[in-house]
């Protein structure tokens, strides 16, 4: 029964990820795209955790940790580029 609840959560999160991707595609400025990718990274982290619990492959949670770190690093890097127009 709990597995069915987790599968439902995964479906809803997948649909919401596509809506975030829509904002990332049509976003008028580059800041909107950075915000949308940041939100998408949080959603995909949750999705990876849910998939790890559903399949009982608990080593996938390490993938979620690495994905959260990559998303944070990408956000800070692109924001610094938007602010300064250079990366060093």
């Amino acid at each position: 029964m709990m597995t069915n609840v987790l599968i439902g959560l995964t479906w809803i999160l997948g649909v919401l990820s596509f809506f975030s991707l829509y904002r990332a595609i049509i976003g008028p400025t580059s800041t909107d795209r950075v915000i949308a990718i940041n939100v998408l990274s949080t959603k995909v982290t949750t999705l990876i955790i849910l998939v790890a619990i559903i399949y009982e492959q608990y080593s996938f949670i390490d993938v979620a940790i690495v994905y959260a770190m990559i998303g944070f690093t990408m956000t800070v890097g692109v924001s610094k580029y938007i602010e300064n127009r250079k990366l060093y």
Partner: peptide, 11 residues
């Protein structure tokens, strides 16, 4: 996540 929001808004 709040740190990222702060950095985006400052940029």
């Amino acid at each position: 996540n709040p740190t990222a929001a702060h950095v985006i808004t400052k940029a």
